[in-house]
């Protein structure tokens, strides 16, 4: 574990917590893409499938973190699609998730390190996570604005994988550990946040709200 991965995981936890708090406190999921949250839940379940298969009772932080990620993302989907369904902005959350899931699944079958079920599921989860934020960014571009709290969520979510890139550089240099698939997908994922990062740094930091030119 290095400082980059530690802060990356903390940033990821913060993102999940910020979103849960926003929905719970405002009792509304306006401006939140339910599809992105569903895709994240699928990512966690397919990536941490080993938790369900051989549930090793030894409780270390990694197992606890995985359980937190899965339960928090499933609970977030429950809030969006059931509890606060009335506030879900379905017509703006209109990016076809199939266009992200099918290519990720296809690519996972073509480009992977080992052709076995667990590895394919893990690879699918990595590819899907890289594009899972697209419905959320698409929704913001359709509504033309993002609530400040949602911007903080996106900033934390984008920073997590950006910090992981630093972690991979660190591990390559000091541990000669490299996982090309995760690195390439992580770079693509972070690039997708670039224009949002620019808006966040130039606007939200100064206390303004993000409003996109309609």
């Amino acid at each position: 574990m290095n400082i980059f991965r530690l802060f990356g995981d903390l940033s990821h936890l913060a993102a999940i917590a910020i979103l849960l708090l926003k929905i719970w406190k405002t009792r509304s999921c306006a401006g939140v893409s339910g599809k992105t949250q569903l895709l994240f839940a699928v990512c966690f379940i397919t990536r941490y499938i080993d938790l369900f298969l051989h549930f090793v009772s030894l409780y270390n932080t990694e197992k606890v973190m995985k359980l937190i990620y899965i339960s928090a993302s499933v609970f977030t989907c429950y809030l969006i699609f059931f509890k606060f369904k009335a506030t879900y902005d379905g017509n703006h959350d209109s990016m076809r998730a199939e266009f992200l899931i099918v290519p990720a699944a296809g690519l996972a079958c073509l480009i992977n390190t080992k052709f076995d079920a667990i590895e394919i599921l893990w690879t699918f989860s990595i590819y899907l996570e890289a594009v899972a934020i697209l419905p959320q960014l698409f929704l913001i571009s359709k509504t033309g604005e993002a609530e400040t709290i949602t911007s903080h969520y996106l900033f934390a979510q984008g920073s997590y994988r950006a910090l992981y890139i630093l972690n991979w550089i660190y591990r390559y240099h000091y541990e000669s550990h490299v996982d090309t698939i995760a690195i390439v997908a992580g770079v693509v994922q972070t690039i997708l946040y670039c224009d949002f990062f620019y808006l966040y740094i130039t606007k939200v930091v100064k206390g303004q709200k993000i409003v996109l030119p309609a």
Binding site: R5, D9, E62, M65, Y69, K114, N167, H177, D179
Partner: peptide
């Protein structure tokens, strides 16, 4: 390279 493929990241 025979580095073990460990999934030790979240």
């Amino acid at each position: 390279d025979c580095r073990k493929q460990t999934k030790d990241e979240l």
